[in-house]
Design a binder for these strands. Structure first.
Lengths: 189, 189
DNA sequence: GGAATTGCGGACCGAATGGTCAATAATTTG
DNA sequence: CAAATTATTGACCATTCGGTCCGCAATTCC
């Protein structure tokens, strides 16, 4: 009978996620991850076969963690406009709080998607999931509840605005620029 | 009298820029840069004091190289709408050609701006320069030629759309998504 | 108690990293 | 020619990198 683990793998993965989110794949060293988790490398290698697998697991964890509140905001009460307002207000509030981590998915897209096939696969699929979420949220209001093309176009535009705002956040753009862009995105719905 | 260089520093810098653009700061090794330039590391260190200086020089080179065509598109004939249409059409065409490098500035924002003060300084300033360029291009048309607040807001929104599209490009989003988002961005002007 | 199984910890590994060193080379000037 | 100056080359450096090894540890089962 195997010796039980002294740590919670999910808790470790959350810490791993945070390091990769901040530092990116290449910038996060195994030593740093050791320090962040308080675990010895060998313990980490018993959980994940290699650094890339760890990174992909972190991306998935991030999507679960951040996707949930996003989904909640997009499926709560109100019309499409109100729903997206909640999302963009939340994004602005986070930047206002000084949280400049941006979006790990967005970071991974620019950082790794063109360099690693597995990351690209994940990122592409995740972007599609986001897009689908946006489409569904739009469909609660006219004209999106009956015009498929308008829905697709608007979802794409909002997705683009969302990612662009994430970049501006990470670039330390002034808060009023971020606010203005967020407001504009909502006003077009 | 010093021995003359056997290579053109500007040409070398262009090659360096390409490597950093594709691989990012951490992902691009000096060995790779050696190979791309055909130069020995010591020759490169005679041009730049260290890797970071090289990276910053590459970012600057990129802004010069890519900023020029962007400026031309935004200052050529036509109203604001036509001008931005040119920019976004160009971006879509590049993605259609399979060029998924995205925007080095955008990549640097997500990748390095929160990790290195010098990069953040550069990126922040460059984003402001882009924003100013966008404002100027908007001012050739109503209502932006007389409404400062509307101009600022629209410039911020277009900047956000521009960067978002760059992320979608890098994420291998389907071309129709990119096209739709680009078209939507222009239609709001 | 021993066997089986997996976990922990620290040492270890070969390769890669960013950067440096020193001999030689190329140019101008006097 | 020698001196001065910077360029080139290839070897070298200490550290870091992602990953592995192995002895000891912890648990259950018989």
């Amino acid at each position: 009978m195997a010796r039980p683990r002294k740590f919670d793998p999910q808790e470790a993965l959350e810490k791993v996620t945070d390091v990769f989110w901040r530092k990116g794949f290449e910038g996060a060293s195994m030593q740093e991850i050791e320090a962040a988790t308080g675990l010895n490398k060998q313990s980490l290698y018993r959980l994940f076969p290699d650094k890339r697998a760890m990174y992909l697991a972190a991306l998935q964890k991030y999507e679960e963690q951040e996707g949930e509140p996003l989904r909640a905001m997009l499926s709560g009460p109100g019309g499409a406009s109100e729903r997206f307002k909640r999302v963009f207000d939340n994004l602005v509030a986070s930047a206002a709080r000084g949280d400049r981590r941006g979006c790990f998915l967005c970071n991974a897209a620019t950082d790794q998607a063109q360099l690693d096939p597995a990351t690209q696969g994940f990122v592409s699929a995740a972007v599609k999931r986001f897009e689908r979420m946006f489409r569904e949220a739009l469909r609660v209001s006219a004209p999106y509840n009956r015009d498929r093309e308008a829905t697709k176009a608007k979802a794409a535009a909002l997705l683009s605005a969302y990612f662009g705002l994430r970049v501006l956040t990470r670039a330390n753009a002034p808060l009023n620029t971020i606010e203005a862009a967020a407001r504009q995105a909502c006003e077009t719905i």
